[in-house]
Design a protein around this nucleic acid. Structure first.
Lengths: 87, 87
DNA sequence: TAAATTTAACCATTATATTGGTAAATATGT
DNA sequence: ACATATTTACCAATATAATGGTTAAATTTA
């Protein structure tokens, strides 16, 4: 089963995750936007999978304490690359 | 040992990884830039941890076949969030 | 039901990432 | 040593993300 994942797919997935994190923390878009010092339109764009800056994506991640995890996962992605399966 | 990781740290790390991937594939910045249809300045900025768009970061990841891994890691980050340790 | 909140979609302006170019400094190879 | 390739750093122009605002739709709450 070959899953073709596109860049758009990843952006949409990141947006969904940001939205889920915001909801599970009981925040409105305005509240999160204010906490991150960005506009709520930017939050909206991120959540809808529009193109965004790495900085703002990481601001969201940081607000929910995910920077540490992300750092670890970046390292793991490299390891995965070295152990890639051809089948 | 409390490690305080900043947004800048993550951007620098991502840049280092992009550079390592490019090098290990024997590409110059110009070659990678042309392959991704972006300018070599953009590659330079990414590698130096400057702010960039999610789209261009994912273009690099996609070129080296990392989209699949990234997708999985996004899911994992959420799981990590739920199992977060307080100590 | 109505009222309040949140989300969505649009717009003009601002801020900034990207582009394409140049030139200088480093590194690599002959 | 030289020549080549790569990297780095700058710049003005362009493209686009971000902003702040409004309005409408959708959802939630009373």
């Amino acid at each position: 089963m070959l899953e073709i994942i596109t860049i758009k797919d990843v952006k949409v997935k990141i947006g969904e995750r940001c939205k889920a994190l915001r909801k599970s923390n009981g925040l409105s878009r305005d509240e999160l936007a204010e906490a991150l010092d960005v506009s709520s339109t930017t939050i909206q764009n991120i959540e809808n999978g529009k193109n965004a800056t790495l900085d703002n994506i990481l601001k969201v991640a940081n607000h929910f304490g995910l920077l540490q995890s992300i750092t670890k996962e970046i390292d793991k992605v490299i390891i995965d690359q070295n152990n890639i399966s051809l089948y």
